[in-house]
Computed example of a mutant assay.
Amino acid sequence: MHGRIRTWGPGALVLLPTVLLLGYFVYGLIAWSFNTSLTNRHTARKGPADYVGFENYGHLFSEDRFLNSLKNLGVLTVAFIVGTLVFGLLWALLLEKGVPGESIFRSIYLFPMAISMIASGVVWGWLLNPSTGDDARGLNRLFEILHLHFLENPWWTAGSRWTTMASIALPAVWQMSGYIMALFLAGFRGIPPELREAARVDGASEFKLYRHVLFPQLSPIALSALIILGHISLKLFDLIYAITGPNQFRTEVPAILMWNTLLRSDQAKAAAIGIVMLAVVAVLVIPYLAWTVRQETEE
């Protein structure tokens, strides 16, 4: 018994502060939010609140504004994931073939990741809508020179949902494509050269080599990238806030709606929106974690 304590004790003491902090600030606050979502605390009043069960969730899914935010999030997620995977894979293919100055290109592709979403959102907001704000007069002149008069009005006030949310996704695609490129490039470099040589000896063309040999080897990486990007798309609050502000119905997603609801001191409704977002994340992440554990167990 004492031997086990000497073996596990120091490690447990080192991990204990992290476990306590994680338990309180993550799981404790999740439990508090879920508990609040079951009450009628729709104001900032103090004192105990009455429990109403899942009434707040029922109201949410019958509310047009919340359903609109879910649709916006779905379109944003699809546009973001597809765009990032396409550009990331394309850049990885170009670098995997070998180009002079590869390290320079890798740095250029990865550089946008060093920029915060807020800074990126402000700049892209100017580029996508240069006619708003006193700070954009220089951009107005630039776009006039380039004859880009179609950007004179706010782009989020017209056009379809796909056009609007794809425009929102564009800065995020620009920032995250380098990361996906690094994942795919590492996957390409990790494939044994013998597989390529064996395929070429068997007479496989370059297209068939990638289609039937290399790309199947990248499927675990593609799945990981899909989960990561899906998770990130749910957290693009700062980017949307910086580009369009918090009060644009056409670009509102659940995170923005939760923020606006909390500012109105409707704590129960805001907590319910947060729990719905957590459930969406769980739907994405838990199957992936279960698949990963099963793969590791089989190996």
Results as ranks from 00 to 15, higher is better:
G3Q: 10
G11P: 05
L15Y: 10
T18E: 00
L21W: 13
L22P: 00
L29Q: 12
I30Y: 07
S37Q: 08
L38N: 02
N40V: 04
R41F: 01
H42W: 12
R45A: 14
G47V: 08
P48K: 11
H59R: 11
D64I: 09
D64E: 15
G74N: 11
V75A: 06
I81G: 02
I81R: 03
V82K: 03
G83Y: 09
W91Y: 11
E96W: 14
V99G: 01
S107A: 14
L110K: 00
M113R: 00
M117F: 13
I118W: 05
S120L: 15
W124C: 01
L128E: 03
N129C: 08
T132W: 01
D135P: 00
A136V: 01
L148H: 02
H149V: 02
L151F: 12
W155C: 01
G159T: 06
S160K: 09
M165R: 07
P171A: 06
V173L: 10
G178K: 01
Y179V: 04
R189S: 07
A199D: 06
R211C: 06
P220C: 10
A222H: 01
A225R: 01
A225E: 04
G230Q: 04
S233A: 15
F237L: 09
I240G: 02
I243N: 03
G245P: 04
F249I: 10
R250M: 07
A255D: 13
I256Q: 05
L262P: 00
L263A: 12
L263C: 01
A268L: 04
G274Q: 07
M277D: 10
A279V: 15
T292E: 15
T297Y: 11
E299M: 06
